[in-house]
């Protein structure tokens, strides 16, 4: 039997079928986790935010436009959940550094990553102000256009640009 499409699963989940929503979680949890991990650079926190993202997705499933792909939508929801979190704790970069050092529970898979390299980028990303991190996430990893980002965040196009360009400039300096 062919596995059901995302669309079928969403329709069934909307009717309250837990199993269907569970299947959606299985399909997209890694994607959501990666957004959260890039935004926080802390595994445990990223897992908690992944859970929170799926709770939000579940409560907003009715607002999702079935004509559009599901993956990008949940990527955006995840990025927004992370921004809310980062704003609520007002994490300063220095605090983040400490937290990152305390993250001594990497998955075995990370051994296969070019750890040195990816850590450098993750640290640099995590040291950016949350707003910059968010637009970089949406532009580079969710592949949204300026106007999509502006609409999604409810901000001016000019603010999207200035946040994005400043964020990149800071990244360039940190990655030098």
């Amino acid at each position: 039997m062919a596995s059901p499409s995302d669309r079928d699963l969403i329709l069934r989940a909307r009717r309250g079928e837990m199993e269907a929503f569970g299947e959606l979680v299985l399909r997209f949890q890694n994607r959501v986790f990666n957004v959260c991990y890039r935004m926080t650079n802390e595994r445990r926190q990223a897992e908690d935010l992944t859970q929170e993202t799926f709770l939000r997705i579940h409560s907003r499933l009715d607002t999702f436009n079935l004509e559009r792909p599901f993956g990008p939508w949940i990527g955006r929801v995840a990025a927004n959940v992370c921004l809310n979190y980062l704003e609520s704790v007002k994490l300063k970069p220095s605090e983040l550094d400490e937290e990152r050092d305390a993250d001594e529970n990497p998955s075995p898979e990370t051994a296969y990553e070019n750890k040195e390299h990816s850590n450098r980028i993750r640290i640099a990303l995590a040291s950016l102000p949350a707003r910059y991190r968010l637009v970089i996430e949406l532009r580079h990893f969710q592949e949204m256009s300026y106007s999509e980002i502006a609409a999604n965040l409810g901000i001016q196009l000019s603010d999207v640009k200035s946040d994005l360009f400043r964020g990149r400039k800071m990244l360039a300096e940190k990655l030098k």
């Binding site: 837990m18 929503f21 897992e47 990816s118 360039a172 990655l175």
Partner: peptide, 24 residues
């Protein structure tokens, strides 16, 4: 361009365990 390249080279991390049962 180097910033773009670095970001695109960032590998996907893997979850250390399945979160679905906890989420459900």
């Amino acid at each position: 361009q180097e910033v773009f390249a670095q970001l695109s080279k960032l590998p996907e991390a893997s979850l250390s365990h399945d979160l679905s049962s906890g989420i459900l």
